[in-house]
Design a protein around this nucleic acid. Structure first.
Lengths: 303, 303
DNA sequence: ATTAGTTCATACTCGCCGGGTATGGCGTTT
DNA sequence: AAACGCCATACCCGGCGAGTATGAACTAAT
């Protein structure tokens, strides 16, 4: 049976054009090397070297094999090296579930930090809803997910990546648009655009809850799927909209963003989800990077 | 030390996701397979499988190695196969030295026949003079050469590929251009364009000799390097030109080709040269094809 | 709960084969 | 003729790959 040993020895002899010198280079004695070469020639079914008094030279078959043998040997070395790197999470693929407004600011910053440390890990991003993320995590289609307001699941852990302030998006025509800051109470009676309504608890529920806390029932004029659509509706005068701060990265003409002055300002999380018992070394490395990110930015799990 | 055995066994286990079944497929028993996998894991420095009661599944490192292992194994198989084919002359490279008028007809026909039988042998053609061909053969830069009027060398054998008739190229304005056929004697007094003058014996010497045989001293007006230049000079009225028949493949306006009627017509060889003791299987196969070609066309070594 | 049936791991023996030393054959060099 | 270089052969030893028998851990079924 062909073994890497045969190819390694053969390559040494082909390189040195001399069996004795090759044996020296391989740190073995000459006779066993001769034997291995003979075995290989028998396996191929043709001589690989023509022996002369000066040493050996390659036959056509030997020439052909030499080219391939080097390729096999270096590929085998590479395979071992890559397996080692994969074991330490330095190689492979990180599938990430992302969501609407998350992709504007915080998610790219975290992923960029990760990519800087592990440039050989391919990062694939998939936009999906919260429930899709949970499903995909369980099926191992993604390794981590980013989302907000994540409920507790028995098999899924989560870690807050950052806390975001809430701000109000209004059409420039609205009288409140001129204010320096607003209170949630100021929005009583204003037509509200909410999003999204799927996957409880969600941002929609969260905003409605905040309104009730401040003593009024929100007047919902429209529910949409994502923040971008919401802001678009605000721009065309449908009403006002409470959005996380990162939504301001989405500029829409005719929309003014005004901060909320509640103190401490009402905060909304962006969290990272992952499977409790996923042994992937890439995940472990990612979580390490995430912890660094949290301490750099002073993030804790409480609001 | 890593061996192909490790990769082969590992690939089988990775494919079956089960050590026992993989052992069955490999025609060995289960314990040694377990041991080999453990060895491989120790070599890599990380587990490749996570064992469960249902069987095994790949870790990230295992996943990475599996992809590479298959590549190494198939490349190793390919290497053996290609070495075998190279040993039988079915793979590799045939460097051919060719010369001016040879490339018009006979050389392509022989090489095409060879290519049809050995499509995986790369054929490289190099135009060079007779002396360059001999030099290149000795330095193994070419495996075969084609040429005419090849002298005997101690280390080089030659084999006639075909015999060519001689014909006369004349400008249309020349009175002899109207004849059906010419004798060499008819050319007495005509201005002759000869080629080439390097590398004796050469075609130039050959033609001069023929003229003397027919009782006149040739009146040489110009010597040029190759047949194409010679015919070009004839076209512009420099004189007449004796060329091998295959030169008629080079059409030049204003040139008329008239056969020589000597009986048996004076013949010129195209021969194939090769190194006496070149062991290359490709050369052997080429010579075999060449012999076929000779019997098909009834070629012998005598004129 | 017990049993039967998975799966992979361990313990031990056997025999092949890779690697060692010693030596021989052969051709070149001095 | 002698000395040298190179590869091949002969022979021995020990490691390791492969085999059998058995254990350990867990699941599934009765």
């Amino acid at each position: 049976m062909l073994e890497l040993r045969h190819l390694k020895y053969f390559a040494a002899v082909a390189r040195e054009r001399n069996i004795g010198r090759a044996a020296l280079a391989l740190n073995i004695s000459q006779p066993p090397l001769t034997r291995q070469i003979q075995q290989l020639e028998e396996l191929i079914g043709a001589p690989l070297f023509i022996r002369s008094v000066k040493g050996v030279e390659l036959t056509a078959a030997g020439e052909a094999l030499y080219a391939d043998a080097r390729a096999v040997l270096s590929l085998a070395d590479l395979a071992v090296e890559r397996a080692r790197r994969a074991a330490h999470g330095q190689l492979g693929r990180l599938d990430v579930g992302i969501f609407g407004t998350g992709m504007f600011d915080i998610v790219p910053r975290v992923l960029l930090k990760f990519r800087n440390v592990f440039p050989d890990v391919e990062i694939a991003m998939h936009t999906m809803t919260k429930t899709e993320q949970v499903e995909a995590l369980r099926q191992r289609r993604i390794t981590i997910g980013f989302n907000r307001l994540v409920p507790k699941y028995p098999d899924i852990k989560s870690r807050v990546v950052m806390w975001e302030r809430l701000i109000v998006g209004l059409p420039r025509s609205n009288p409140l648009a001129a204010r320096e800051a607003l209170s949630i109470a100021d929005l009583a009676g204003q037509p509200l655009v909410l999003f999204p309504s799927t996957g409880h608890p969600n941002f929609s529920d969260f905003v409605a809850h905040q309104c009730r806390e401040h003593g009024f029932i929100p007047q919902v004029v429209q529910e949409v799927g994502d923040a971008v659509t919401g802001v678009a509706l605000v721009a065309s005068g449908f009403g006002v909209c409470i959005v996380p701060e990162s939504a301001t990265h989405f500029k829409a003409s005719g929309v003014v963003y005004v901060p909320l002055k509640e103190s401490p300002p009402t905060m909304l999380d962006v969290s990272c989800l992952y499977l409790q018992d996923d042994p992937s070394p890439i995940l472990r490395e990612f979580l390490r990077i995430l912890e660094e990110f949290r301490t750099e930015n002073g993030v804790t799990d409480d609001a």
